[in-house]
Amino acid sequence: MAGDWTDGQNDAIVADYFAMLADDIAGRPYSKAEHNRLLQAVIGRPRGSIEYKHQNISAVLKGLGEDWIPGYKPAFNFQASLVDAVVRWLDRHPAWLAPAAKSETGASASAFREDAMLWIGPPPTHSNAPPPDELEQMTVIARKYDVAGRDARNRSLGRAGEERILAHERASLLSAGRTDLAERIRWVSQVDGDGAGYDIRSFDTDGSDRLIEVKTTNGWERTPFHITRNELAVAEAHREEWRLVRLWNFTREPRAFELRPPLEAHVSLMATSYQASFL
């Protein structure tokens, strides 16, 4: 059968993909060949077509800032209807986007509290950007489905990310022999509320402040994120101490990078909301 995939075919292969992804996250054995064989009978598509469509689904999930099956390398230039099918599946399974729900599929909840240092790498730059067509397609998906807003509204994801950065900061100071400083780290957003313009007050090994705003996603390192006017103002007022820690690939293997003010040197800032007052 040639031509575009129908909604029914897309829905069937997306559901099958998420079944494999749940097994993959949980560490349960599964057979890609067996899944492919069964799908051939259900949707009437050949093995190679199904294999490539699985790679397309990985690409869609990457654009949506979500986890994907590592064995299916993202392949781009997919139909818009496939994006709609993935979003339909996620809409029908809202718990999938919550860290607690993912732990039920097999990811260890203790991973969010692991007392170990994170991999801290370089931030994204023009030099390490993906090909323009790929980046454009992912950017369109992220904007259309407001991936940044979804992550910002996911309070359980944000809290788990902050908790993970707390553990990293403590482990870093303890490994440097600064137990005194590790004991003084403060989870500001939980103890004092969200108005400070940063989530965690930590320290460099010389005792200077690190005012850390944490932004967490299950997606890749270029997944967009929201930042508030207050956070930008505090970043500008405390350029030497303020840090934005971007925590990504959170469910699988949390990694992070740091951005220092001015943020305009690293990211493009776009206003997404305005305050309205009566005349």
Rank of each mutant, 00 (worst) to 15 (best):
residue 2 A to W: 04
residue 3 G to T: 08
residue 4 D to L: 12
residue 6 T to R: 09
residue 8 G to R: 09
residue 8 G to F: 05
residue 8 G to H: 09
residue 9 Q to A: 11
residue 10 N to C: 14
residue 15 A to S: 15
residue 15 A to C: 05
residue 15 A to W: 01
residue 16 D to H: 03
residue 19 A to C: 02
residue 24 D to A: 13
residue 25 I to R: 08
residue 27 G to R: 05
residue 28 R to C: 05
residue 28 R to P: 03
residue 28 R to I: 03
residue 28 R to F: 07
residue 29 P to R: 15
residue 29 P to T: 15
residue 33 A to W: 08
residue 34 E to D: 13
residue 37 R to P: 00
residue 38 L to C: 05
residue 38 L to A: 14
residue 41 A to S: 10
residue 45 R to T: 01
residue 50 I to N: 06
residue 53 K to G: 02
residue 53 K to V: 13
residue 55 Q to T: 09
residue 56 N to Y: 14
residue 57 I to D: 04
residue 59 A to D: 07
residue 65 G to W: 11
residue 65 G to Q: 09
residue 67 D to E: 15
residue 71 G to M: 13
residue 71 G to D: 15
residue 72 Y to I: 02
residue 72 Y to F: 15
residue 76 F to M: 12
residue 77 N to S: 14
residue 80 A to R: 12
residue 82 L to N: 03
residue 82 L to Q: 04
residue 83 V to R: 02
residue 89 W to D: 06
residue 92 R to L: 14
residue 93 H to G: 01
residue 95 A to R: 10
residue 96 W to E: 01
residue 101 A to V: 01
residue 101 A to G: 14
residue 103 S to F: 08
residue 103 S to Q: 12
residue 104 E to S: 03
residue 105 T to Y: 15
residue 106 G to T: 10
residue 107 A to W: 06
residue 108 S to A: 12
residue 110 S to Q: 14
residue 111 A to T: 07
residue 116 A to I: 11
residue 119 W to I: 06
residue 122 P to N: 13
residue 124 P to C: 11
residue 125 T to K: 07
residue 126 H to V: 00
residue 133 D to R: 12
residue 133 D to A: 10
residue 134 E to L: 08
residue 135 L to G: 00
residue 135 L to A: 08
residue 140 V to S: 10
residue 142 A to H: 08
residue 144 K to N: 12
residue 147 V to L: 14
residue 147 V to I: 13
residue 149 G to N: 11
residue 150 R to G: 06
residue 156 S to Y: 07
residue 157 L to R: 06
residue 157 L to A: 03
residue 163 E to V: 02
residue 166 L to F: 06
residue 167 A to Y: 03
residue 167 A to C: 14
residue 170 R to G: 00
residue 173 L to P: 00
residue 175 S to F: 02
residue 181 L to S: 05
residue 182 A to Q: 08
residue 182 A to D: 08
residue 182 A to T: 02
residue 188 V to P: 01
residue 188 V to R: 11
residue 194 D to Y: 07
residue 194 D to C: 04
residue 195 G to Y: 07
residue 198 Y to C: 04
residue 200 I to Y: 05
residue 201 R to S: 06
residue 201 R to V: 02
residue 202 S to E: 04
residue 203 F to E: 04
residue 206 D to E: 10
residue 207 G to R: 11
residue 211 L to P: 00
residue 211 L to W: 07
residue 213 E to F: 04
residue 218 N to D: 13
residue 219 G to Y: 08
residue 220 W to M: 01
residue 221 E to S: 08
residue 224 P to Q: 10
residue 224 P to H: 09
residue 228 T to I: 06
residue 230 N to M: 05
residue 231 E to V: 01
residue 233 A to T: 04
residue 235 A to M: 07
residue 236 E to D: 11
residue 238 H to P: 00
residue 240 E to W: 01
residue 242 W to G: 02
residue 244 L to S: 03
residue 250 F to I: 03
residue 251 T to P: 00
residue 252 R to E: 05
residue 256 A to V: 02
residue 257 F to G: 03
residue 264 E to M: 11
residue 267 V to P: 02
residue 269 L to P: 00
residue 271 A to L: 13
residue 271 A to W: 03
residue 275 Q to A: 12
residue 279 L to K: 09
